[in-house]
Design a binder for these strands. Sequence first.
DNA 1: CGGTATCCGTTCAGATACTG
DNA 2: CAGTATCTGAACGGATACCG
Lengths: 138, 138
Amino acid sequence: MSQRNSAVTDQAGATDPEKLAVCTVLEAINRISGKWAISILLEASRGPARFTELERAMPSISRRMLTLTLRNLERDGLLVRTVYPTVPPRVEYEATPMARELYDSLSGVVDWAERHHEAIALAREAYDGHAGCAPARK
Amino acid sequence: MSQRNSAVTDQAGATDPEKLAVCTVLEAINRISGKWAISILLEASRGPARFTELERAMPSISRRMLTLTLRNLERDGLLVRTVYPTVPPRVEYEATPMARELYDSLSGVVDWAERHHEAIALAREAYDGHAGCAPARK
DNA sequence: CGGTATCCGTTCAGATACTG
DNA sequence: CAGTATCTGAACGGATACCG
């Protein structure tokens, strides 16, 4: 996710309608970029999910990152957090309608990715190859 | 952009088709996330653009970031770099068909962002407000 | 003109320990 | 159970100087 969304607003020339669109997409994209946001959103779209459920669904996430990502998504109104004051405590996260819509509108990008991710992988290999076996560009 | 795309592959349970989709979108998104990628892609979609043109089109970008972003986009096959061995040197960047397609398929997300960015701003204010006037979540 | 190299601060993100 | 706190290294990103 990264809270560096302010990065968007100083893009210059926000008067140009096309750049305004860029600005808007960037905002949306930066909101769901980051390692975990999308996966969490997907889990929470299936119905209310508890903290530990999410943790188990994504074995390699750390507690800290799970919490941070949840908070940010909640902050943007993509997730609702419900606390049941029982003991032991029970907290549920669920995707808002807005978040589900977002997920739907990502389908265009999903299609694109599926059509081209092979070509991209090839392009990378070619680039990394001719550049002298650099495993990952520094 | 961020070259930490490997983040995607260890998402666990890549057998689940739905998670595979997540994985694929994430790859695409992380490829164009980052402060500058989209703006550059837009500029380069209008026709060949020179280094300095791009630099001027985005006043607040640093040389380093411009170069890095260009290299990464080139690496992924979204941009072609053409060097004319004249003096002074002349280098042109142009978006590939694949990149233009990507831009088109982002329209769904653009729509979503336009429909909801107000609601999101409000959600943020509300969240930040009740949480005790924290200007930006630490 | 079109970069690269270097320095350096900021933010991201993992591991671990502790708590209501 | 559902977090918070803290410490740490890695990656991101800006400024600047230099180079073919």
